[in-house]
Simulated assay, not measured.
Amino acid sequence: MEGFFGGLGDALDEQNWHAALVMALTLPDICGKADAPGGRSGQRYAAWFDRHVGSRYKHRIGAGREEVIFLSGNDCYALRCALLHEGSTDTSTHSAREALSRFHFCTPGQFNNGLHCIQINDALVLMVDEFARDVLDAARAWWASLTPGARQAAADRSIALHDTDNISI
């Protein structure tokens, strides 16, 4: 898992926003599979996102302090599918979506203006760096909370990169 975490951290440090976004949208898949190996990918993804990242995208707004979910696990999964399979942020035709049909990602820019977690009708505006860091921080906290046995079982199911100078398969 450290390779995935490091890859996302490096993408953020290098301001490689597309790579950071792809990694951030992939981590809940990887973590969800490690957390609950059975079941369907979309259900695992949404459950993991809601449990570990979702609170960062729930806010109490208005005079009545009504709780509003700006980004659910299902909407994030629909975004993951749209981006990874189509290179798009349009989720309007994805069956997993709940409330959102489009996403707009912004980069920090020279003045670091923040347009994060702003919903306009059925579109959500997110800062790519904040979103990616939220997922990365949640994934790291989740990983640290696992028992050594659970971490080892997840590592055993995960991809292994082999050094060609010292390969042993």
Rank of each mutant, 00 (worst) to 15 (best):
G3R: 10
F5K: 05
G7K: 04
G7Q: 08
A11R: 07
L12I: 08
Q15N: 13
N16R: 13
W17T: 00
L21A: 12
L21F: 08
V22S: 06
M23I: 14
T26L: 03
T26Y: 03
P28E: 04
C31M: 02
C31G: 00
C31Q: 00
A34S: 10
A36K: 03
P37E: 09
G39V: 02
R40D: 01
R40K: 05
G42Q: 15
R44S: 09
Y45E: 05
Y45D: 04
A46P: 11
D50H: 06
D50I: 07
R51M: 03
R51Q: 05
H52A: 01
H52R: 04
G54N: 13
Y57P: 05
H59Q: 08
R60S: 00
I61G: 05
I61K: 09
G62M: 11
G62C: 11
A63K: 01
G64A: 08
R65W: 03
V68W: 14
I69V: 12
F70W: 09
F70A: 06
F70Q: 07
L71Q: 07
L71K: 04
L71E: 04
G73P: 00
D75W: 02
D75M: 02
L79F: 06
L83H: 15
L84A: 04
E86V: 02
G87D: 12
D90G: 10
D90N: 12
T91W: 10
T91G: 11
S92H: 10
S92T: 11
S95F: 08
S95N: 13
A96R: 06
R97M: 08
E98W: 11
E98P: 07
E98M: 10
A99L: 14
S101G: 15
R102G: 07
R102I: 05
F103M: 07
G109A: 04
N112D: 15
G114W: 12
C117D: 10
A123W: 07
A123G: 05
V125I: 15
L126M: 14
L126P: 11
L126A: 08
E130D: 12
F131W: 15
F131N: 11
A132I: 00
A132G: 01
R133V: 11
R133N: 14
A138T: 12
A138L: 12
A139D: 00
A139E: 00
R140N: 06
A141D: 05
W142A: 00
W143H: 14
W143A: 09
W143R: 15
A144Y: 01
T147K: 13
A150V: 00
A150C: 03
D156S: 01
S158C: 09
S158D: 15
I159Y: 11
A160W: 02
L161T: 03
L161H: 04
L161S: 05
H162S: 03
T164D: 02
N166Q: 13
I167G: 02
